[in-house]
């Protein structure tokens, strides 16, 4: 399980300051919307005639109802991706990468199957890949249905006393705790 992460007494305030600076300088942090934006860009490349991202006099719109809602807000981002949320998410990945160069948080032999999952579901790579993929489908479908994810709803929401943040956290832990307790009995 090594290397150890930052202790909560240090990591907590530092992470809190990042969330605060985001609200001070721009807007609350959120990630899951960018999966939709990337989907829209890929879909538009694959089927350029389907009208997934179409330029209009006022901006962009789409034949997809989700991308076209709120005046085509999501279609706008897919049409012109050099915007705050897209750059934020790309920079987030760069930041994590730089952090791992200074001191990696991935122990040897963990790249395919993390230890806790190896202990409980075995070290067979393809099974872990299938589980990670299935988890990804559920997480992003759920996040878009909820209108946000762990960052946008749970953290950014609850720190603004947003009622949706509390409701989301309740729903997420309602299933996450029992699922993890049943699936991950051995401690790796």
């Amino acid at each position: 399980m090594k290397p150890m992460p930052l202790n909560w007494k240090i990591g907590g305030p530092l992470l809190g300051i990042v969330f605060f600076l985001a609200v001070l300088l721009a807007k609350p942090i959120g990630v899951s919307t960018q999966f939709v934006v990337l989907d829209a860009i890929l879909w538009n490349l694959q089927q350029p005639d389907a009208g997934i991202v179409t330029q209009t006099a006022e901006g962009f719109t789409s034949t997809n109802a989700y991308l076209a809602k709120s005046g085509g807000a999501l279609a706008d981002e897919a049409g012109n991706p050099l915007t705050y949320p897209v750059v934020f998410v790309l920079a987030m990945m760069v930041g994590a990468f730089l952090s791992s160069l200074i001191r990696s948080t991935v122990p040897k032999g963990e790249r395919n199957v993390p230890a806790m999952y190896r202990a409980n579901t075995g070290g067979f790579w393809p099974l872990r890949w299938v589980l990670a993929f299935a988890g990804g489908v559920l997480v992003l479908y759920g996040a878009r249905l909820a209108g946000g994810c762990t960052s946008g709803h749970m953290m950014s929401g609850m720190m603004q006393t947003s009622v949706s943040g509390y409701v989301f956290a309740f729903g997420a832990f309602l299933t996450a705790f029992p699922t993890a307790m049943m699936l991950l009995k051995k401690e790796g």
Binding site: A134, V139, G142, R144, C149, G171, A172, T175, T179
Partner: peptide, 12 residues
């Protein structure tokens, strides 16, 4: 949505 996300979060 939160409950669906919670399942996937624990699995992945």
């Amino acid at each position: 949505g939160g409950a669906i996300l919670g399942f996937g979060w624990a699995i992945a």
